[in-house]
């Protein structure tokens, strides 16, 4: 089979699995376990584990997805621009909340890692868990993390935030769209922001703002802290 045909086939399989999962997700009333990203990933991982198909070839074939993913991050400029209005009054509260959430998120990941004696490369890969993949991979490298592990941690973190974040926030009494948006953008970067965009315009705008502020602040501060500590 030629490479181009091979690539098209994997792209079609991925979109097909996503389409089926999305249908199930809507049928099940948006239950977290049926989220359209989970089922296709599980099916594909099982396929690669059970057969002698090469997952590296799959990843090369679906390279185009990462271009569109990066383009989607560029597109977050739209909610980001609109957030200026939504945030007019409470900019200080938003900034403090982002910083608090960002620092507490990193520290609460580091404490168990230290207690369980995780290797340094892994610890460094956890530092970037709440910032969007393109920034995380760049920063993780500069503080001695492993880019592939950092990327995986970032993605699963975002997924957890998007899947159970809104219900956990409701449980602790946070149901205001601005507060939910700030939390989803700070802790769940682009995936959390996408979930916020789906829920409401205000929530999405605020989440995009939080994601950017957290991402840029972490990108600037983390290498400095690592340089001082290390």
């Amino acid at each position: 089979m030629t490479a181009a045909l091979h690539a098209l086939l994997w792209i079609a399989v991925t979109i097909g699995l996503y389409g089926a999962a999305d249908w199930l997700y809507r049928k099940s009333g948006h239950r977290a376990f049926a989220h359209p990203v989970l089922l296709p990933v599980v099916v594909l991982i099982v396929i690669f584990e059970a057969s002698n198909l090469d997952s590296a070839k799959y990843l090369a074939s679906t390279q185009v997805f990462s271009t569109f993913l990066a383009a989607a991050v560029v597109g977050l400029a739209v909610p980001l621009y609109r957030s200026f209005d939504a945030l007019k009054e409470n900019r200080v509260a938003v900034m403090v909340a982002i910083m608090g959430g960002s620092v507490s998120g990193v520290i609460s990941a580091l404490i168990p890692a230290w207690l369980l004696h995780a290797p340094e490369g892994l610890i460094a890969s956890l530092l970037t868990k709440s910032i969007t993949t393109p920034i995380a991979v760049t920063v993780a490298q500069s503080v001695g993390g492993i880019p592939a592990v950092a990327a995986a941690v970032v993605i699963v973190t975002g997924l957890v935030a998007a899947l159970i974040g809104p219900s956990v926030l409701r449980l602790v009494g946070v149901d205001d769209p601005v507060a939910t948006g700030v939390a989803l953008g700070t802790a769940g970067h682009a995936i959390g922001t996408a979930e916020a965009v789906r829920r409401s315009d205000v929530m999405g705008s605020v989440a995009a703002f939080a994601m950017i502020v957290n991402g840029l602040a972490t990108a600037v501060l983390l290498p400095l802290i690592a340089a001082v500590v290390g």
């Binding site: 359209p36 990203v37 594909l44 997952s55 990843l59 682009a190 995936i191």
Partner: peptide, 23 residues
């Protein structure tokens, strides 16, 4: 265009999640 991409973000994250197999 931005809204359309945002809607399919879960689809776009499938390959990077499968890449967890590498680590």
């Amino acid at each position: 265009g931005a809204k359309a991409l945002m809607r399919v973000i879960p689809l776009l994250f499938i390959p990077p999640l499968v890449a967890i197999l590498d680590v």
